[in-house]
Amino acid sequence: MKRYNISYFFKEGISGVWSHGFMSFASVSVIITCLVLTGSIAFLVLSLNQTIASMGDLGDIRAYVDETFSDEEVAALETKVRNISNVSGVDFIDRDRGLQELKEEFGEEAYLLDGLEYDNPIRHSFRIVVMDIDKYDETLAAVESLRGIATVHSSKNAMDALVNIKNVLQGVSVGFVVLLGMVSVFLISNTIKLATFDRREEIGIMKMIGATDAFIRAPFIIESIIISQIAAGIAFILQWIICYYISGSKFAQLPIIEIAEFSKYMFLYLIAYMVTALVIGVTGSVASIRKFLRV
């Protein structure tokens, strides 16, 4: 493409957006809806991930070691635990520290545990930090199956519930992307079809004087890119506002809930919106102009 043509393509593309105002508006609106709905669910998923991560202890696995194991055996066992895939950290808690922590948990009533130092009933244990919550079950099973692990404490049920919510949300958001994505492609392709229909005589003239298909197509693709990027821009600003309100809501003030920081993901959102909208726009326009170029 010659440099001289770029400004022509843009001029034509912009005038196309204006002259099919209603269709452009409809396309922009649907793309915005698609992006913002999906983006908001994604934001909830992000927040949920953060909530799960911040639950710290709740997500950890506590594995108690068989008391007949020698120190060497315990050390070897620790290595085995560390080597389990999806384990991101292992904290060895010996009997004394275990008792100490228990006392701290008892607080005021710690005196109930007085005297236990002389015949400590607590076993050595590992606090195991799980990397990917989605593989929690496998990791838990792997820990349990190790020889020398006597009992395992985990918050499997609570974890499962959170992971389930997250999976449902993720599924819903994929559904939205597919469904609204298809509606968006359909609308934008109709907008461009209208544009090419308006210009069918001109397209015929252009072909007659030796324009390549790429040259003829370019303004229409630019038109759809402009539509899609306007939508991406507005969707991004809307998303920003929505996330700002979610962060300030009562829901966000619940003690266990951790809301993700939008500013941390802002750039990612912008890029994702621009790329998704671009794919929608270009797919829609290419699908609709092919027909008109056959002579």
Partner: peptide, 15 residues
């Protein structure tokens, strides 16, 4: 298109 660039075509209806 490259063939057409070597031709100049004129029609009854101007186009």
């Amino acid at each position: 298109p490259y063939l057409r660039r070597t031709l100049g075509v004129v029609f009854q209806d101007f186009r």
